[in-house]
Nucleic acid binder design. Structure first.
Lengths: 154, 154
DNA sequence: CAGAATAATTTAACATGTTAAGTAAATAAT
DNA sequence: ATTATTTACTTAACATGTTAAATTATTCTG
């Protein structure tokens, strides 16, 4: 845990001490625990993320969903097609703005989420047992602060 | 910054309070600052990451490089082809193990890194000015601890 | 109200992510 | 030593990431 000094000049930091790579490696390390579950149930990471956000938010338009799930609009278009074909989401037009696509989870989609929830929570507990739930809480707090500080509207 | 209680049962957390999504959103927020620079110089995020790791490690075999850069082997195969065509990396065979591909930065690749370093460091400083370098240091420390705790060899 | 500008989404094209299968070299087991 | 297994990498196929252009609906301007 040796701290590197802040770069005074214009040098690059060790990759381990840069936010983009450190955050990526951390996420990969965490996802390694979840991927077997997703693969077992034939959903991609992105499809699962879209469904998790819909479960949380209810009916939303495509742009907002894309932002929340960190998925670009063109990817979301294809993902929605897949999820709709599988009966997991329902798509409609916004009656007050014909440009917008509204999306929500279907009953089947909601059931699918709830079917995987116990296994997902169990994996999360396994991770918590290795890191400590307190430390995870701290990390999530720090990330919330970072997101607030970097949000574009500031 | 209201803390959620640890899930006692089998419910899913708010997406904001899950490591996979929180880490992803944080990384996207950070990368939004770097992407214009990379686009301006016609390198993808992954190509740049490969070069950053090579700059740090010197000559390494493809498997190790893939792990360090969080890139899967098939993607790396294609990325190496692109970077080699552009003259940024040099590829050779390991004489003591004919299966292994060895890779290192070329002189041009090294120059390219150094050419972008100042702008990259400046962007990093801009981010630091919004979050605080101390807080970033704490976050990076927490991530190092997480990576150590989740490393498979434990 | 008509035409211009803007906005939300989709399509297209290429790079990468991901899994499975294939190839070649090294190692292990008879 | 020959065969089988393992290892490192590549190829193939499809999903997603990414940018630019196209499409359709809305809003702005005159």
């Amino acid at each position: 845990m040796t701290k590197q000094p802040t770069r005074a000049g214009m040098e690059l930091s060790q990759t381990q001490r840069t936010l983009p790579i450190a955050l990526l490696r951390a996420r990969e390390a965490v996802m390694d625990y979840f991927r077997p579950l997703l693969a077992e149930h034939d959903v991609t990471e992105q499809q699962w993320r879209v469904m998790r956000v819909l479960d949380e938010l209810g009916t939303v338009d495509a742009s907002f969903l894309a932002r929340q799930a960190c998925i670009l609009a063109p990817s979301l278009t294809r993902i929605m097609r897949t999820l709709e074909a599988r009966g997991f989401v329902e798509v409609s037009r916004d009656s007050s703005d014909g440009r917008r696509t509204l999306v929500c989870l279907s009953k089947e989609g909601s059931q699918f989420i709830r079917k995987l929830a116990p296994a997902s929570a169990k994996i999360y507990q396994d991770i918590e047992s290795k890191i400590g739930s307190e430390r995870i809480g701290t990390l999530l707090d720090e990330i919330e602060i970072l997101l607030e500080a970097l949000s574009p509207e500031k």
